[in-house]
Nucleic acid binder design. Structure first.
Length: 977
RNA sequence: GCCCUGGUGGCGGAAUUGGUAGACGCGCAGGACUUAAAAUCCUGUUUGCUGCAAGGCGAGUACGGGUUCAAUUCCCGUCUGGGGCACCA
């Protein structure tokens, strides 16, 4: 009786399905445990071997918790809205709903293949109207709310209206414009439209303006991903930044809470650090630099506000820099500089933020012709614009201190702006002194003060003369929430006279009755007029009874910001999730996913959870208690080499592919056309003579990705390659190595369809079985580390399962499990394994668990153990990792009548594990010289005597006197002489 | 450029709190069984020198420093792979 994984896995999958073993109830006496994976976006490429890594880890944990007696919620769903489906629709005309449906079916099939314990009755799909109804509902809650800074909580906007009616906004300054001020009388005199405009500045979901990539040729807004090398990915058209009205979520109001409540989460320090840095809280000052009428042509009384974290350096300011998009640029630019400024701003429009931030060596900027007044010494400071100042950070303007900041320094040097030194000898004139130590010099009354002291003093003065104030700034920006796209959630918003209203406003029926605003069917995915999304083309749909519909859709992260709540109560028609359900399941106990979501999804869902908590809809304010980041499984790409020639080959027959050694050779001479031609002639490619070579003769040697499935190691499958690329005697060249093989190149990259390095788990499951696949993915290495996929080692874990099988069954005679009493040695290895596996799962060290299983099975095999008393607990241990074989061994081998899924995880007995003697490494002066064994109970005195008497130790001591004798019980011995 | 993270044999990795570096597996080499193959089993496998051999001596965890009786582990600097950088998900 052999280990026939195909039959076994099929049989138990059907059994589990039939008996609905993975269905979870919301009522149970057991303690609850919520184990969640980041749900996938169902792409057309299907699952690759990287996806299941985290899923297997969480599956093991969920099964383990179940064995430990928990009621475990372990659901799965699909993040089904998104750009790729729409791009695919644009290219092929297939409706995103159809392709998404198809992709989901494929994902589901692939997931089922691997044997996960998901409760599919709770599946959610973000593109399902029954689901996005509640995404829209939550959006409306945010739209109808504001953030009360006094109570540090979100609250209904109606409360704010009452406050305005009674006292104006004196106690609740406007988040978008802190100069906005009105009393109750003024409020009442505003028109309804004006009132709504003011409220918009307070709402948690609000409208504002932001820059987007605009492509004139395509007539559409592009995502960052769709802009490659400064042109549109589709068609290669020019793109530029353009302001557009957009929806936003006021996540900045939560910035402080998002930082402080990180402390109560069990996330990795790295992950917390990334979020903290993303939020980027910094303390400093806002300083006003006046723009005097006498200096500037424009109207006076205005000033440039800058944010600085170094108010102590204020006497080192030599110029000001505005972001090129800054609203003051138009008014302050002098007539002489206007052309230069316009030209510069045009250039900046083509630049991404990334380029502007990273290309620091390239100094660009333009003088506006204007001057501002230093508030403390009344010096006149030139005002520049430069791309290194970003509009979205701080006030979009900086005070430049060249002697103390690298970028300011480079800028001053480049444009030959005189530099004021406020650091004495620490500033050399070559580089800025950006260290935060030593006293400030040459700074009027701040001279001689420490940095902290000077900063305090400067702020106090600025406040006194009303030229600035203390300010805390966040790097975090409000979250853009509009997309000019089709395949996303429609907004539950209508416009009346261009004023946006929630669809639930001015409506007699309950708010949920007007939801969902269903995504209408379209036949064309072409953009609408004026950069609007495709929905704007549907006139009938846009004109609703309540007003003109919003034609933007929500971004990808909308649906994923709250999906973990829906799993708790997935079929609820009257609420996003019933309070009883959310109170029962509470937070996600373990959330598993990649670090690539560190600052996007994970930050947004934290904000949504806090908002829902503030508004009283749920009883907890953090979604994910514990976070496990699985590493990325990278692809190992393979490359072939092609020689591209222009007007050089005499009798051109087709494409020229060469093996690696030729490539290496050609690459060296690529720029030397003579040598290249010589080489090509030498290897049998007939080239024109050099005299005949034309002006436009060109040669280049490039690498192409080639499908990894065409390559074994580095060896190309030649027959298949020739067939696919149509290379034979009459069409094309293929130059191999001397031994007739073709050697490819390799590189580790992200696994993706476009790189032809995708390995499909289906093939591996078909060949080795799901249990082997699961074990192998875990055995590859720590779950949180990135590593390239390599199928080579899978034989080892497959052999392990076969070996395990032979403990229970004999190939000829069948089951061989006996009821003999176990020996001490057998018990020791079993209990060691129980302990190790238990501890390893708790710390998510699954690779070492697998290796312990191997050690255990190897030892039991050597001992010839087929005893029920040993094998039964071992089977339970293995259930979490390899559920199919475990169920077979449990029910067929060990003759249990019920599933192993509900067995009790075995307890280990420390006494059975204890070794009676320990072998110590003995070092002399920290260098290991010998080994000695002592009883586990041996104390230092006993050990010391024996060690010092040892001949080897004595030899290395060379009769020198002992300085120290170090004995760490159970670890090691060190003699210091 | 900025933030986070990794670098240990031919390869994936182990060493959990500073305490015997290389567990476990792959690959490779040799052997057993077999007419043969598959499967299975056994032995060896960081590296240099040395020895007939058991062994012995030295080096070694990206690189250069430091702290310590003791460093893969802690500190400083350098190089380098990966992820993210706000409209991919």
């Amino acid at each position: 009786m052999e280990y026939n994984f195909q039959d076994i896995e099929k049989k138990w999958k059907q059994y589990w399905e039939k008996n609905q073993v993975y269905q979870v109830t919301n009522e149970s006496d057991k303690p609850k445990c919520y184990v969640l994976d980041m749900f996938p976006y169902p792409s057309g490429a299907g699952l690759h071997v990287g996806h299941p890594l985290g899923y297997i880890a969480s599956d093991i944990y969920a099964r383990y918790k179940r064995l430990k007696g928990y009621n475990v919620l372990h659901p799965m769903g699909f993040d089904a809205f998104g750009l790729p489906a729409e791009q695919y629709a644009l290219e092929t005309g297939q409706h995103p709903a159809d392709t998404t449906e198809k992709n989901i079916a494929r994902y589901r099939e692939q997931l089922d293949n691997i044997g996960f314990c998901y409760d599919w009755s709770r599946e959610v799909r973000t593109s399902d109207p029954k689901y996005y109804k509640w995404t829209q509902w939550i959006f409306l809650q945010l739209f109808h709310s504001w953030y009360n800074r006094t109570t540090q909580k979100a609250a209904p906007i109606s409360e704010l209206v009452s406050v305005f009616e009674q006292e104006g906004n004196s106690n609740h300054s406007c988040p978008e414009d802190d100069t906005l001020s009105f009393d109750s009388e003024q409020w009442k005199q505003y028109s309804a439209t004006e009132q709504r405009a003011i409220l918009m500045h307070y709402r948690l979901a609000y409208q504002g303006h932001a820059q987007v990539w605009w492509c004139e040729a395509l007539g559409t807004v592009l995502a960052n991903d769709e802009v490659v090398n400064g042109v549109s990915e589709r068609g290669g058209h020019p793109v530029e930044r353009k302001m557009m009205r957009q929806w936003f979520l006021r996540i900045t109001e939560y910035a402080d809470r998002l930082i402080t409540s990180l402390d109560k989460l069990e996330w990795s320090d790295a992950m917390k650090e990334m979020q903290r840095n993303w939020i980027g809280k910094s303390s400093g000052a806002e300083v006003n630099f006046a723009l005097p009428m006498s200096v500037n042509a424009a109207e006076g009384n205005s000033s440039i506000k800058v944010f600085t974290t170094r108010p102590d350096t204020i006497f080192g300011v030599d110029f000001l820099v505005l972001a090129p998009e800054h609203e003051l640029v138009d008014t302050i630019t002098t007539a002489e500089q206007k052309n230069a400024v316009d030209e510069y701003r045009q250039y900046v429009k083509s630049r991404s933020e990334r380029e502007r931030m990273s290309e620091v060596k390239q100094v660009t900027g333009c003088f506006t012709g204007a001057y501002a007044v230093h508030p403390l010494n009344q010096n006149l400071l030139p005002v520049w614009i430069a791309e290194y100042v970003l509009a979205g950070y701080g006030t979009g303007a900086i005070m430049a201190v060249p002697s103390g900041d690298e970028r300011d320094h480079a800028f001053a040097k480049h444009f030959e702006i005189p530099i004021t030194n406020i650091f004495g000898e620490r500033y050399t004139g070559e580089n800025a002194y950006s260290e935060k130590s030593g006293n400030i010099e040459n700074s009027g009354y701040l001279s001689g003060m420490s940095i902290a002291e000077a900063a305090e003093t400067a702020i106090n003065t600025l406040v006194k003369i009303e030229a600035g104030k203390r300010r805390v700034n966040f790097r975090l920006r409000d979250a853009g929430f509009s997309r000019q796209r089709y395949w996303g959630e429609p907004f539950p918003i209508v416009y009346v006279n261009d004023v946006p209203y929630g669809v639930d406003e001015n409506n007699a029926t309950a708010s949920t009755d007007v939801l969902p605003v269903t995504l209408p069917h379209v036949d064309s995915y072409k953009p609408g007029p004026e950069g609007k999304g495709p929905l704007a083309n549907l006139e009938d749909w846009v004109q609703s009874a309540a007003g003109e519909r919003e034609t933007n859709t929500m971004p990808g992260y909308a649906g994923s910001s709250w999906y973990f709540l829906r799993y708790m109560d997935p079929h609820n028609d009257t609420e996003f999730a019933g309070r009883a359900a959310t109170d029962y399941w509470q937070q996600v106990d373990l959330y598993v996913g990649g670090t690539e979501h560190a600052v996007g999804h994970l930050l947004y869902s934290r904000m949504w959870t806090k908002a829902l908590y503030d508004l009283g809809h749920i009883g907890f304010d953090e979604p994910f208690k514990k976070l496990l980041n699985q590493g990325m499984i990278q692809g190992s790409s393979r490359f072939v080499f092609e020689v591209l020639v222009n007007n050089l080959v005499r009798s051109r027959k087709g494409r020229i592919f060469v093996s690696k050694s030729h490539y290496v050779h050609l690459k060296k001479t690529e720029n030397d056309i003579v040598k290249t031609i010589e080489y090509l002639n030498e290897i049998g490619i007939d080239c024109v003579s050099l005299e005949n070579k034309r002006e436009d003769s060109k040669i280049s040697i490039i690498r192409h990705h080639v499908d990894v499935n065409l390559v074994d190691g580095m060896l190309l499958n030649l027959p298949l390659f020739k067939e696919l690329f149509n290379i034979n005697a009459d069409s094309g060249y293929l130059l191999t190595e001397d031994d007739g093989t073709y050697i490819c190149d390799a590189e580790v990259e992200k696994m993706s369809k476009s790189k032809y390095n995708v390995v499909n788990p289906d093939n591996i499951v078909a060949q080795y079985g799901a249990d082997t696949f699961r074990l192998y993915e875990m055995f590859l290495g720590p779950v949180d580390v990135s590593k390239p996929w390599d199928t080579k080692g899978i034989e080892g874990v497959h052999r392990f399962l076969k070996k395990l099988w032979r403990l229970y069954a004999d190939e000829q005679t069948g089951w061989i499990i006996n009821t003999d009493a176990p020996t001490e040695g057998e018990l020791r290895i079993l209990h060691k394994t129980i302990k190790k596996v238990n501890e390893d799962i708790e710390r998510f060290s699954f690779n070492t668990s697998v290796s312990q299983f191997m050690i255990c099975v190897n030892e039991l095999t050597t001992l010839g153990c087929h005893k029920r008393a040993i094998l039964e607990p071992l089977t339970i241990l293995l259930t979490a990792f390899a559920p199919h074989i475990a169920e077979e061994l449990w029910q067929e081998g060990l003759q249990h009548k019920t599933t192993v899924l509900d067995a009790a995880f075995p307890e280990y007995d420390e006494q059975l594990i204890a070794e009676s003697s320990i072998t110590y490494g003995v070092s002399v002066n920290g260098k290991k010289r010998t080994e000695m064994s002592f009883a586990a109970t041996a104390e230092q005195a006993e050990v010391e005597t024996a060690v010092l008497a040892d001949a080897t130790v004595q030899k290395w001591m060379e009769d020198k006197p002992i300085k120290k004798f170090i004995f760490v019980k159970g670890k090691m011995i060190n003699v210091v002489v």
